[in-house]
């Protein structure tokens, strides 16, 4: 199991479009992937879950990945959140 914490850096936060990107990305992996904000943990493969987090700009989220492809999964998620900033910058 891998755990990693991120600060959301795109201005609009994880609103619908980034949430869609994250869910689509997470769904590609066999591992179970959860994302947590303020003690509220949701399935990262569920768009409703991710939207319910209301992760706005500057919020801190922790991603927990557990499964056979957890390393590639966490790398891909890091790329999306930290490097690409959901392609919004």
């Amino acid at each position: 199991m891998i755990k990693k914490t991120y600060i959301i850096k795109n201005k609009l936060g994880i609103h619908a479009r980034p949430a869609g990107q994250l869910v689509k990305l997470a769904s590609r992996f066999k591992s179970s992937i959860y994302i947590c904000k303020n003690g509220n943990e949701v399935n990262a493969k569920s768009i409703m879950g991710v939207l319910m987090l209301e992760a706005g700009f500057g919020s801190e989220v922790t991603v927990r990945v557990d499964g056979e492809d957890e390393f590639t999964a966490i790398d891909a998620i890091t790329d999306l959140i930290d490097n690409r900033k959901f392609d919004e910058e």
């Binding site: 619908a16 399935n43 879950g49």
Partner: peptide, 16 residues
Amino acid sequence: AAIFEIHQLMLEDTEL
């Protein structure tokens, strides 16, 4: 058209 992708994800949402 992008909004429909969000709709598609909502429709298939495993949690829901």
